[in-house]
Design a protein around this nucleic acid. Structure first.
Lengths: 335, 335
DNA sequence: GGTATATTTGTTATCGATTACAATAATTAC
DNA sequence: GTAATTATTGTAATCGATAACAAATATACC
């Protein structure tokens, strides 16, 4: 390994001068700069990131905890994070937690072992134990998407899920739907509560009855969409509108509806959340809520960067605007 | 920050003993172990990964260069990499290169700056310049999916794209198709060449004429599928079978076919490559080549781990088996 | 030209661990 | 009980950089 010592000898200067030439070029004369750079080139020298970091105490790395890397929605968020990170000189360490709390805890502790400077949480389970909570209080951490349940309030960048849910239901009500069903994802989350109460609020205002049995599902997957739709179609009175809590679920639901020989949206309207890429190209294209995922990621990283640099935050919670995309998977209720 | 010094003082031992207690517990007596562990707990001490790595010269981190994080096919590979990495004590640094060679080069150089021990390449552009090539020769590197063009031969874990392509074409020929079209992704790649020559070989054997104009497209995206399909449908004689070089392209192609009021597969059969999750749930479900993505990732990581640990490889190139999944997007050629 | 000031470079301590080597304590052998 | 051996702990060098401080050199000014 070529190290700074070797370069300094090659250039005939001290190691300090080499370091200065590379990190603060204004402090050295043109002549020595030239000498040093020549030696650097000849030796093929690159400063060890490890050594630099250990000395400066900064890794310029942040950890992102993702529940599921395969979900393109999270990937859009990560795209935004990456962009903002790059602009600020941070590298992103992506960690697929698979909802496994052990993994999550392992990855989170990277911040404590000087492996990263901060953490962005796209999941919502960490911190889970009291131990973690205490531990987490000292580390710069931002939550994107979902509020974290903890004594200490972490900055949150999220969506107004309550309003988004209301928009979807309004859209369906305007088409004359009265028999609603919901296929949910993870139940213990703020997202879940907000969306459900948004739904309930509109139905109450419109005087539409809602059967609690029409809430099914337990995960954000295509398979859950299929299985839950199967359950719904087996019920005595079939719903005419199904609200899925993400696009994957909606894709599964539509698949099952078609499989049973029914038609979307003539028999059943299906709507989703997230607006993943493929949902626009389904047959029929999916009506969904477009979340400004990229922007959410960007903001999350900006906030985390401020936190790491001890820049005081103006506000600890931000809600970004959503957009209702009316496509062909929703239509008039069958008569 | 609680460091090893503070813990050693708290426990009344030397820093060396603390280090030994944590890393080589057999070397200390039960009594001191107890003392030290108590101090560790009290101080909430965690060894600095940075300091450890700088001393040992090992980061236990590997870099994975991904052309596109949003593609679920790559995510399956990464899942396999992560699993094998975890088993071997490695952490994965995921880098979305976006096909940008500057980014790719930046990330690749992490191995040279002691930020990672090795590299897995899912793309195929690095190393691109002579400079990079020289640089890349010294670093442990494995290519998954695609062969790398370089003097030095890197280990490769890939698919027999030639055979897979032949299987797809055979399948379509058996349905009586004679007018073929191809929508390709990135053109300058071994994958591209292998698949095309697979196609050509079968058509030659079967005495089916192939019009070179029927090769369109330039990227692995839904949009490219749409645009390319539009081009194909504008031609005087419409193809009856379209081979798409990944599932995203196929999804776009099917979408455009439907938009123009045609039917898949009655009018046109569409087949893809990769078998991403959603392709099974399209309407109609997509006939495609299932690549053992997870397994490819696993093997890639295993090989890289051996490379890093200077364990000699038994062979430098591996081809994993594929599977043709016949679904409903392909059927008999129209009469 | 000589002193004061500014600029550039070198020396050396430091970051937080690990580890070769030295020193001490505990066992064993006779 | 003493010498020889082994097990445990401590001391200090080291990894590869950075940065405070000191020293040397260059520039400014009268």
């Amino acid at each position: 390994m070529t190290n700074i010592k070797k370069v300094s000898e090659l250039a005939g200067v001290s190691t300090a001068t080499v370091s200065r030439t590379l990190k603060m070029p204004d402090m050295v004369t043109a002549r020595t700069k030239e000498k040093v750079m020549k030696a650097v080139r000849e030796a093929g020298y690159r400063p060890s990131w490890l050594a630099t970091s250990v000395k400066t105490g900064r890794t310029n790395t942040i950890v992102v905890l993702v529940p599921n890397l395969v979900n393109p929605f999270f990937m859009r968020i990560i795209g935004g994070i990456e962009q903002a990170a790059q602009e600020r000189g941070f590298t992103v360490l992506l960690c697929d937690t698979q909802g496994d709390s052990k993994r999550e805890s392992d990855y989170a502790s990277m911040v404590l072992t000087n492996r990263a400077d901060g953490l962005i949480q796209l999941d919502h389970s960490f911190p889970f134990s009291d131990d973690d909570a205490k531990l987490a209080e000292t580390i710069p951490m931002v939550s994107v998407c979902e509020r974290i349940h903890s004594e200490k309030k972490y900055p949150v960048v999220s969506l107004d899920n309550y309003a988004a849910s209301r928009a979807l239901v309004h859209h369906l009500v305007s088409y004359g739907h009265t028999r609603f069903a919901v296929i949910v994802g993870q139940v213990v989350s703020q997202i879940h509560k907000d969306r459900l109460s948004g739904l309930r609020s509109v139905l109450a205002e419109e005087d539409i009855e809602f059967d609690e049995d029409m809430i099914v599902g337990q995960s954000y997957s295509i398979e859950n969409g299929i299985e839950s739709m199967r359950q719904l179609l087996a019920k005595p009175t079939r719903p005419t509108a199904v609200i899925c809590f993400n696009d994957d679920i909606a894709i599964g639901a539509m698949h099952e509806i078609h499989r049973q020989g029914l038609h979307v949206p003539n028999d059943i309207s299906v709507v989703g959340f997230d607006n993943v890429k493929v949902s626009a190209f389904m047959n029929p294209p999916l009506t969904t809520i477009d979340q400004p995922a990229y922007e959410m990621g960007r903001r999350g990283m900006e906030v985390l960067s401020d936190l790491i640099n001890s820049i005081p935050l103006t506000r600890s919670s931000e809600m970004l605007p959503f957009q209702l995309l009316e496509r062909q998977s929703s239509g008039p209720a069958p008569v």
